[in-house]
């Protein structure tokens, strides 16, 4: 089943009189259960592509269908609605809300989805267990290491059982050990829950886990090949 389907997608940024073509005629289909890496040098369009799949941005032209729903033309609130039920994000920086505890950070998407208190509690603890952070549930982000914060961010991305998790350079700010740990957790969740993961990265530690590697250069897909990651 297709989780995301991009057809002839172009994204042009205009700053003053200067136009930058970040993506140019991208055609890409992500199937359910994939563990895909978008790779390429800086400025190749990886992050832009990830943001379009995540409905954080809209294409200049072309069509983006997420979970069977056309997203081009949706307003800000409709896109927010689509995101909160379907897509989870893990960012390069440890994107936790600093005033909330690990528990509350993971709980936030569930609150936004209107889940009951009992269901939230069960789900949050289950996810914190899964990423090995249950014992730090009541810590705030500034009391956690980078690796721990990123694990909480993964748990938060998974909170609403999204079809698709998008991760932008998830290991960029982590040391080897923590980076491996985070990737192991994501791979395990991919295997056990069937959640689709798409990464933008140029970190070989990430790429080695991928079962599909899409290579971008100057805004176009130059290579789309199976990866070495075990399913």
């Amino acid at each position: 089943m297709e989780v995301a389907k991009l057809t002839d997608v172009t994204r042009i940024y205009k700053v003053g009189q200067v136009e930058t073509r970040a993506l140019n005629g991208i055609n890409l289909t992500i199937e359910s259960g994939e563990f895909t890496s978008l790779v390429g040098p800086s400025g190749s369009g990886k992050t832009t592509l990830l943001q379009l799949i995540g409905c954080l941005d809209q294409p200049t032209s072309g069509s983006v269908v997420i979970n069977g729903k056309e997203t081009t033309g949706l307003n800000r609130n409709q896109r927010a609605d689509l995101r909160k039920g379907t897509i989870g994000f893990v960012f390069q920086f440890f994107a936790l809300i600093p005033t909330l505890t690990a528990y509350e950070n993971v709980e936030m998407p569930l609150l936004l989805n209107g889940k009951s208190a009992a269901e939230r509690r069960r789900r949050v603890m289950e996810l914190l267990e899964a990423v090995g952070m249950a014992d730090r549930a009541n810590n705030r982000p500034d009391q956690l290491s980078g690796g721990q914060q990123q694990r909480v961010a993964v748990a938060r991305a998974l909170a609403t059982n999204p079809k698709l998790i998008l991760a932008d350079e998830p290991t960029a700010n982590l040391d080897t050990e923590n980076g491996e740990q985070v990737m192991e957790i994501m791979k395990k969740l991919n295997r056990e829950t069937g959640t689709t993961f798409v990464f933008a990265t140029h970190d070989p530690r990430v790429i080695k886990y991928a079962n599909r590697v899409v290579t971008l250069q100057d805004g176009v897909i130059v290579k789309d090949a199976p990866g070495n990651g075990k399913s």
Partner: peptide, 16 residues
């Protein structure tokens, strides 16, 4: 700003 971006990314709407 970034925090608002995160909240928006995880589905918080404008009125919220």
């Amino acid at each position: 700003t970034r925090e608002i971006g995160i909240l928006s990314a995880i589905g918080m709407k404008g009125h919220q």
